[in-house]
Amino acid sequence: MAHQGEHNRMTDNNGGGGNAALLALEIEDLTVAYHSKPAIWDVDLTVPQGVLMALVGPNGAGKSTLIKAVLGLIPRAAGSVSVFGKPYERARDLVGYVPQRGSVDWDFPTTVLDVVTMGLYGGLGLLKRPGKRERELAMYALEQVSLQDFAGRQISQLSGGQQQRTFLARALVQDARLYLMDEPFAAVDAVTERAIVTILKELQHRQRTVVVVHHDLQTVTDYFDWTTLLNVEIVASGPTDTTFTEENLRKTYGGSIATVNAIAGGDS
């Protein structure tokens, strides 16, 4: 990036404040491998503050891997990640994570409210239990995703879309500045999808940065003002207008142009 030096200088005065030029996420030369087989390869990516970004790419492109590597959930083979100018380990409370829905045991003996409260565990020290204040915050987050009536339910008694919204509420309750969401639209109906998009736009309105792994090429231009195309390596990244082009999609998805045209519709 051309403004590398400038960014670094600015990021030195930490992640707070409303510094518009500050990068929410800055990834340099990141490589992650499973058993010496790279899942993402030398990725450079910068995400400016306040964007609503789609992370798009075919199955196995490394989207989940990229997010997990940022969060330190899997070891990085090379490269560096900084969040608001700080290494992730020192910026944890600035980041909220919405994992793919299948990643937990839904038969676990716990309630919806309880799961959302877990989003606040990061701020509790050893020996501190979540109390009234935490429950109130969690309840407020549940209201935002219209799940307040389900607070006391065991989580297996939720539909797929409700489970997804529970995860979303758990991230919202963290009141993070950067959100990383892995396929929040998977298996949700049109109404829930609308509701989630409204929440995402609201987050953006409040100067939050949101990165969303997204599969539906039809809606990318509608929902997101920033797009990154990934297939092991970064194909393109920038404002959706200039990035989400037929040319780039073909590079990302390979295969026939017809297929890409069909999935992208007449959008580009």
């Binding site: 330190g72 994992p99 990643s103 716990t110 877990m118």
Partner: peptide, 22 residues
């Protein structure tokens, strides 16, 4: 008694736990 919260979150969702610094 001391690690109840920690045991709970790492059992239910180890990824979230790790991302929160557990």
């Amino acid at each position: 008694a001391i690690f109840f919260k920690e045991l709970k979150i790492t059992t239910f969702d180890p990824e979230l736990a790790r991302s929160l610094g557990y």
